[in-house]
Design a protein around this nucleic acid. Structure first.
Lengths: 266, 266
DNA sequence: GCAGCTGTGAAAATCCTGTGAACGCAGGGG
DNA sequence: CCCCTGCGTTCACAGGATTTTCACAGCTGC
């Protein structure tokens, strides 16, 4: 899979040479001559961004900081003509991944962009196309779908990605921020409820085809945990003693507490 | 959590300066003067490795390649006195994450190592989150829960964070202000009793699932200390005179009180 | 015994999640 | 070119769960 990068620079000579090298390497490169809103960067699905802070004007630091915090997975490389150690340190601290000084050899720029992109990718891909069997459902990455028997859940892309992520981390409680970061690819805005909404959609579809299982558990104040559980065990845990009760023991309360509260409110 | 790095370099001046900065930043730094087998690097649990290829001799390229392929999660940074573009490109291509030229400012070296480590951590799980075994309970950060056997304590988020903090600092007396600051994230208002209230909730839940242990001890006028202790030793300390009493004293209450008292004095 | 702290239970205030529906956007077909 | 449909995002609200606050009673240390 080829690397996608964008260059924010007005030095057309530099960019042209770079573009030629990038093309030779089979990369996709797009040039911009002014700051691109982080939102748009998201849509570009970049692996790395090469910036000359000169084109950003006063808000250069601010821009770099916003980009790096909103797109933590994006490789961010600065290439500028003059800079002091203090500036470089500041930039690297802010979230810049690499800082080059002009004039720089385009081959080296390409190599550094590649190194930065590689780092970002290493953590991610290991698993691919490995179907997951969870409960009475099968999740097939090759189809971007999940099936119960031979019936498809009819998931949209986001729904599938969310489900797959949760299922991969089965048993672990994932915080909303983490989920959003990994499924949407950028930082979650404060107050965003998208994760909740998609969990509801998933639960609905799961309920439709696999009503006797519970898959997604809510952890109040934290996030969600995926763990397929047949409906049976719930009943068992709630009723260890199938006695209509002859004594008014206050057990009922602490019992229901430990079953509900911790794992699921739904 | 602090960063762990190793430096492979014989330039003692450079390394000394670097070590000073690293220490100031709270990092763990170890110096080596020759190639360290990748196997040993694994054991060192490093975030990043800073190398001067000069100390590696002929097998420098080979070594860099082996390290980067065997430890894909390790940040690999080269710092060398002279290098050509071709060398830098070659290095970056075969897995080096960043390449600096000597003389380089130690502050910048630190910043680049930090950048590389940060990038490395992003893709991974945010926190390693090793489970803590305390008394007959297990605290599992991956579930935001504590368990006794396979029974969950049913902790809320705040409760869990408080318990985890206390358990991490096991044996230490923590002041209320400190606790509040670290769990709530901001300064405690004068007269706020939240910490006390949550300690009570924790004690109640702990008592429910692990009645024969005492976990949280009160230090009058100061704060709390976490230290799991089985009931046995308590009985001994409390029992200079083994009189079961013949009066209808509300045992439960006075008993639990004196428990706290016993430790308070220590 | 007094003043100051801590334990306790419950009420009050706050925050969080589930839910249904509206909105905007992009692509396909008419 | 316009309409329709599918999808993702945003909103507002209701019902609960959780956290904070209070008033009081029981200890501590002097």
């Amino acid at each position: 899979m080829s690397i996608r990068i964008a260059v924010l620079d007005t030095d057309s000579g530099f960019v042209t040479v770079l573009a030629r090298r990038a093309e030779a390497a089979g990369w996709h490169l797009s040039q911009k001559t002014g700051p691109v809103p982080p939102r748009d960067l998201v849509a570009m699905k970049l692996n790395a961004l090469l910036v000359d802070p000169a084109v950003l004007g006063d808000e250069a630091w601010d821009y770099l900081e916003r980009v790096s915090s909103m797109l933590p997975d994006l490789g961010l490389v600065v290439c500028t003509s003059r800079s002091t150690v203090a500036q470089r340190v500041k930039g690297l601290r802010l979230g810049v991944d690499d800082w080059m000084t002009k004039p720089c050899h385009p081959e080296e720029a390409i190599a550094r962009l590649e190194a930065v992109s590689r780092r970002r990718r290493r953590g991610r891909q290991e698993h691919e196309a490995a179907p997951l069997a969870v409960g009475e459902m099968e999740i097939r990455p090759d189809r971007f779908q999940a099936f119960v028997g031979d019936e498809a859940l009819d998931l949209t892309r986001r729904e599938f990605e969310l489900l797959y992520l949760l299922a991969e981390e089965r048993g672990q409680v994932l915080e909303r921020e983490q989920i959003y970061q990994r499924v949407w690819g950028y930082a979650m805005a404060h107050g965003d409820r998208s994760v909740d909404v998609f969990v509801r959609k998933l639960r609905k579809k799961l309920e439709g085809l696999s009503p006797s299982w519970t898959y997604i558990h809510t952890h109040f104040g934290i996030g969600y945990r995926f763990d397929p559980e047949p409906a049976g065990i719930l009943a068992e845990e709630l009723r260890p003693a199938p006695e209509p009760a002859a004594e008014p023991v206050p057990d009922a309360e602490s019992d229901s507490q430990s079953v509900h509260g911790a794992f699921t409110s739904g």
